[in-house]
Amino acid sequence: MNNNKLIVSHAPFWHDGDSLFTLNLNLMIAALPAVIFGLVQFGMPALGVLALSLSSAMVWEYVITLLSGKKASIHDLDSAVIGLFLGMMLPATAPWWLVITGTFLAVVIGKIIFGGIGANPFNPTLIGMAILALSWTTLLDFDAAYVNYDFDFTALVPLAAVKAKGALAVSDLFPLNDLMMGKQVGAIGTTFGLGLVIGGIYLILRGFVRWEIPVSFIIGIVFTALCFNLANPDKYAGPMIHLFSGYTLFGAFFLAPENSSSPVNRIPMLIFGFCAGLIILLMRNIGVYEDGTVLGILLLNLVNPLIDTIRPKALGKGVNHA
């Protein structure tokens, strides 16, 4: 078979000259500050969850490629990134079978079924998380997960507390400083806001993540939160709580810009990020979910092909259906 010289593939054509290996390695490096902080804060169980999710994701990919007779592709580290991100979104108390099921859903259902890397219409990590959250709501309830932990800060999930009691009642419980420095209850790798921002900026500067999506995502969150907050400050929390709690920053820098499920052109990217932030805030403030990040980004993944039809006009003449 010597016919792979001229392969015509469809969009996205986004390419920055690096290999998948360097891209994924840098994604993991960028996640390190938040991960290390999570390990320090939640201890050995967190290390167990992360190690298991990272390794099981790679094992699943290897097993499935072996079964389907395809070339093994785990050396591009893509499944490792999926596994790491999934582990970062779980509580440190997640049981082993939850982690393994999650990585199966993420890697196999979220990615390989659609044709492997680059062909997935949804962010694989989010597919795994969404299905886990639908099935085992109680295990992913961070309030319940950490009852045996002894923290030196408010042991309440900020978004859940805001939702249950209104912003005014809990305004003293969550000083911005604490939220930014990761002194809050949440998933292993998503509580340390400052670390996530540092990682995100590193990715943007190195060019692994396009700046349009995180920036417009954050603008979407802040703008919508501000609108709600101005309309009813007693009930709806301000933008800073929304920005530094839940999965928000992790979604902005690591999940939403996932290459094959986000737009290619600049204007669509801006729309994508802003709408994701808007939808997440609508879910948090009006819907039934405490944190709509997972479903919000998935929803935008779904309309991504539609947004991506907004593209620059081709130069020259005679191109009607470019």
Partner: peptide, 18 residues
Amino acid sequence: FLPFRFMLEAPGAFIGLG
């Protein structure tokens, strides 16, 4: 045993069948 409730939903049927 904590049931995998997703399988009882319609998308679970699709994925199971697939």
